[in-house]
């Protein structure tokens, strides 16, 4: 079972969350320090590696994470820190450089420590009206998941083709 939850929320937001068995200051460090970020940010099992990783962790400072895809192509994510409150809260922007025209995502990450464990929640607020409207549809995520299940049943039934 996956411990990570990725949900669409009822505005233009995607929410990612997970619990870690460590105090918040350790999770916060691992989330922000470039020498640590480069060890987890690339999804290695998909054949993706970290080409470079820089972060100037202060308000107004910037970061740039570059991923190298299995085909050798590189894509960069970059942004600026808007709020840094160790070890509980971070706000930063993020631009996917190949689609810079689409605008920047604002990411708010909270680290909530209880009994030595930390609940991390990352809220990604998307800029475009289209995506916002899409996610605004009430119960979208829940509805979509059910829709997909029903759709799978439908398309695998003999009547469709």
């Amino acid at each position: 079972m996956s411990l990570t939850s990725v949900e669409l929320e009822s505005d233009r937001t995607i929410v990612i969350s997970r619990k870690f068995n460590a105090p918040a200051r350790i999770v916060f460090d691992a989330w922000t320090r470039a020498d640590l970020v480069k060890r987890w940010w690339a999804p290695k099992a998909l054949g993706v590696t970290m080409a470079s990783c820089e972060a100037d962790v202060r308000v107004g400072g910037g970061y740039r994470y570059v991923l190298r895809n299995p085909d050798g192509g590189e894509v960069a994510f970059s942004g600026q820190y808007a709020e840094i409150t160790p070890p509980s809260r971070l706000v930063y922007t993020q631009v996917f450089e190949p689609m810079a025209d689409a605008g920047s995502v604002t990411i708010t990450v909270t680290f909530d420590e209880r009994d030595g464990k930390t609940h991390m929640v990352s809220r990604e607020l998307y800029p475009s009206k289209e995506v916002r409207e899409a996610v605004l549809a009430s119960g979208m995520e829940h509805g979509l998941r059910e829709t997909m299940e029903q759709l799978d049943a439908l398309v695998s039934s003999p009547g469709l083709d």
Binding site: T4, F20, N21, A30, W40, P43
Partner: peptide, 9 residues
């Protein structure tokens, strides 16, 4: 990503 982060932590 978060599996990898968990190992690092």
């Amino acid at each position: 990503r978060l599996e990898q982060l968990d190992s690092l932590i």
